[in-house]
């Protein structure tokens, strides 16, 4: 594996991570570092384990019945899989936007955005109206929903629902943000807004984004990891991966020769 040494400023370090669904191993001995204030793009063909990888970073993988993992994931040098660590506290620090939009159907748009704050008991201490407006603006949704915040979140279009989920993840102000194909259902304008948002957010956060869009990966990320069949084939600086990939398979994938 080729790449620059980034363990210095690593926010999240992944060491010898393997993951299984039942007997089916889907990740093989992954090593990588997520740097603070950088965007890390995860690319690779469908089914190669990208979602599983980022779900291991906030302990969501283990919520699937029969799923297990091995290895270590360090958040600021603390192993998040240590038995004394409460997964709930980890998930509050590492936010996630899922591949499929999943707003709470019984809650209004407003309540969806502040759902995380209510869960963690912070809702009473802050001005919810302000937070809702700020997060919906960041997620490029405010202008479309500002007059119907009391309507159910399930009444939005697929792309709007995805942006609602982004706003919901932002409201709890996590330290690391994991985004699983956040733009796959968005039109070019909304995609642009989300990319602007990522640009804005990375001043304060470490961001991991799964994407099938090579241009997007090269536009917004500093780091890129290429997965193939559960292995991290290559991980390194985006400019270098997209210009002089170290592995023939990476080159084939980004030039569209397979996958």
């Amino acid at each position: 594996m080729k790449g620059t040494d980034v363990t210095e400023q690593a926010r999240v370090s992944i060491k010898n991570l393997s993951a299984w669904f039942g007997e089916h191993q889907v990740l093989f001995d992954i090593n990588a570092s997520i740097r603070d204030k950088w965007v890390t793009a995860i690319i690779g063909p469908s089914g190669c384990g990208k979602s599983t990888f980022i779900r291991c970073l906030n302990r969501m993988h283990e919520t699937v019945p029969g799923a297990r993992m091995k290895g270590r994931v360090l958040l600021d040098d603390e192993d998040i899989y240590k038995s004394s660590v409460d997964p709930v506290s980890i998930r509050r620090r590492i936010g996630m936007v899922f591949q499929k939009p999943n707003p709470f159907p019984t809650m209004s748009i407003f309540d969806n955005v502040v759902a995380g704050l209510r869960l963690s008991g912070q809702a009473r201490r802050v001005n919810l109206n302000e937070i809702v407006e700020r997060c919906l603006k960041q997620a490029a949704l405010w202008s479309q929903v500002k007059d119907r915040l009391k309507e159910p979140g399930a009444g939005l279009s697929g792309g709007q629902q995805q942006r609602l989920c982004i706003a919901r993840a932002l409201a709890v102000e996590p330290e690391v943000l994991l985004m699983d194909e956040p733009c796959s259902a968005l039109d070019p304008a909304a995609t642009q807004r989300i990319e602007d948002l990522i640009f804005e957010l990375k001043k304060n956060y470490a961001i991991v984004i799964v994407t099938h869009n090579m241009q997007q990966a090269s536009r917004i990320s500093e780091h890129t990891g290429f997965f193939l069949n559960g292995e991290l084939v290559e991980f390194g600086e985006t400019s270098q991966i997209f210009t002089t990939p170290g592995d023939k398979r990476t080159e084939d994938y980004i030039t569209g020769r397979f996958g």
């Binding site: 906030n58 969501m60 919520t63 709930v88 506290s89 998930r91 509050r92 936010g95 996630m96 899922f98 499929k100 999943n102 707003p103 709470f104 159907p105 759902a115 995380g116 209510r118 869960l119 963690s120 989920c165 919901r168 993840a169 709890v172």
Partner: peptide, 19 residues
């Protein structure tokens, strides 16, 4: 997916059930 959304926001099991 809905339970996952709640867990990912830092909801405990009981909060997820309740809300």
């Amino acid at each position: 997916a809905l339970r996952e959304a709640s867990y990912a926001l830092g909801g405990t099991r009981w909060q997820t059930i309740r809300r």
